[in-house]
Amino acid sequence: MKYAKAIYASLIVFFLIAPLLVILPLAFTSSAFLTYPIPSFSTRWFEELVVNSVWSRAILNSLIIATATTALATVLGTLAALGLRSQDLGMKSQIRTMFLLPMVVPAVVLGVGMQSLFVRLGINSSYWSVIIAHTVVAMPFVVISVSGALTGIDRRVERAALSLGAPPWKVFSLVTLPLAMPGVLSGAALAFATSLDEVVLTLFVAGPNQRTLARQMFSTLRENISPAIAAAAFIIIVGTVLIALALMLARRRRG
């Protein structure tokens, strides 16, 4: 039984990471094609990412957009989670559902709607349009993760702070926020990752100047299947893993 479980778990893990195992080695191919076998190893495709302005621009765009999205989604999502915790809020579960809706609404539908909205507002094909679109889909992750952290906080601890003479804003900054911080940080990391690999909405609302890395990979796949895609994927994955590790370390230090 024990072996059966272990084998089953290994198979699942293998199934999950097999695509990565297929694509990542190709980042180091010297060939001009995204195929096996790999003739010899080289870093030419990483150089391509830096030297070719299309790719380097895409990397920069992704960083700008993901950073802004993370900041915006984390602040808004945290505020939403705090509001949803308030006791005298009517229709709480309906409002919560509204906040989580972007997770289940098909991205294509969201994309069409946003595009026409942004066009009307005159901000389509700008950094703002992409950042706003990404924030909409990233915020639910922050709401969920911060709400989880907040439910773990005993209200009596906050009441105690009030009774000890702390005005409400100090209770928030000295007690509530520090205690919710692990949730805020994982929410932020999820928001960052969401923005990094968002493609569908980006297709609708970004102009040529806001091509993100994921978007660039997507179009390269269709036009000329170059191993630069694999190199870009490698960078995204390494970045994500690093963020996850940093989070884990931060958590462990907190105790």
Binding site: D154, R156, V157, R159, A160, S163, G165
Partner: peptide, 20 residues
């Protein structure tokens, strides 16, 4: 009068210490 201006010490059943 808001709680933080009442100047009362409260001890709760579950202690309610600041865990951090």
């Amino acid at each position: 009068l808001p709680t933080h201006k009442r100047d009362m010490g409260v001890v709760f059943q579950n202690y309610a210490l600041f865990p951090h």
